[in-house]
Amino acid sequence: MNSFYNQQTIAEKVTLSGTGVHSGKKTNLTIHPAEENHGIKFRRLDLPGTPDIPALFKLVVDTSLATVIGNHGAIVSTIEHLMASFAGLGIDNALVEVDDYEIPIMDGSAREFTRAISKVGLKEQDRPRHLFIVNQPIEITDGEKWVRVEPESCFRISCSIEFDHPLIGLQEIVFDRAENSFEKEICGARTFGFVKDLELLKKFSLGKGGSLDNAIVIDNDKILNEGGLRYPDEFVRHKLLDCLGDFSLLGMPIQGHIITHKSGHHLNHLFIKKFLDEKQAWETGPATR
């Protein structure tokens, strides 16, 4: 059962394997239950001392192609889809053990992580969940791109994107934790890219694990994936998925309405920095009934 008021962890450990989209390397991943107030932490089993890296904004070291966190010389890359699963399912506490630096891309969405976690179920814990309660609007802009948060009695997130491409154009979506199902509506939305971008990534020895199995690939006038899209607006649904993963690095959920337009990992992280700096605009407190 998904509790809003108390912290949650997973009921049993979950193990998955897959390929890193940039490294092309196979990574084995095990998600363990964790005690109250543990938060989400990653543990590098392949490094001496098996260092832990908490999934927190202050430890983000790169957002150019994916979200990368680092601590004491150890990094974990491409965490955003797994973090979106934790956020979407309402998981506060977990330990993620990995044997390489990049989280597997799986099918390019959060679906396989979400299904594996949902299969074992969640465990409600005894401590209350704490929130950032937004009292004043905060906004950051970069040309035509912007991220804003406004006071709201629940958690809501609105995303819009706009691409000068006939298959995308302007798309908008709203996700409300109380009214929408992350599992049915968001977690299966895959990352996407254009043929020209993939060729450029591979030229610089990036995107080694990228393929039609783990991304929507768009050409000038068609989608190259067999079977097409999972949702008519899969592109903006994936952007919302990324936002859930990015904002989860605050370490606590937000009670407020997040609104983004044409944003990406970099602007999301600049917004989080501004959010944490503007302490007069929010307070922290337990989720109340």
Rank of each mutant, 00 (worst) to 15 (best):
R127L: 07
E199G: 03
S181V: 10
L224W: 08
G228T: 10
H130G: 07
R127S: 12
T30N: 06
L241G: 00
Y231E: 10
R177T: 12
E183Y: 08
E124I: 05
I272P: 14
T114N: 10
F155P: 01
F86G: 08
E152W: 15
P54L: 03
I79K: 04
N6C: 09
F271M: 11
K262N: 09
S211I: 11
K25W: 05
K119E: 14
I259F: 07
G20I: 03
F235C: 01
H72T: 03
E278L: 11
S181R: 08
L59C: 05
G264C: 06
D99K: 02
S64Y: 03
D52S: 08
G245L: 00
C187S: 15
G227C: 12
K58D: 14
F113N: 02
S3C: 04
H261L: 06
G245H: 01
R177N: 03
M106I: 06
S205V: 04
V149N: 10
V76S: 01
P166L: 00
K273I: 05
Y101D: 04
G143D: 11
T9W: 05
L206M: 09
A281M: 09
D52I: 06
K25R: 14
S205M: 03
R237V: 00
G256E: 06
G49E: 04
G228Y: 12
F271V: 12
D197I: 08
P128S: 14
S64M: 10
L16P: 01
L240Q: 00
P253A: 05
H269S: 13
E139S: 13
S211F: 11
F132G: 09
G90H: 05
D219Q: 00
R148D: 14
A110N: 05
L95Y: 09
K222I: 00
P253D: 08
K196L: 07
D213E: 15
E278I: 01
L201C: 02
S64T: 14
R115F: 05
S153Y: 13
A189K: 10
L267E: 10
F192P: 02
D219H: 01
L29D: 01
S181D: 12
R230K: 15
V149W: 14
I91A: 04
A281T: 12
S17T: 15
P151F: 04
T19M: 09
L276E: 13
G285N: 11
F182P: 00
A87E: 14
I10K: 11
D242L: 06
F86K: 05
L270K: 14
S181N: 09
K13V: 05
G90F: 02
V76L: 01
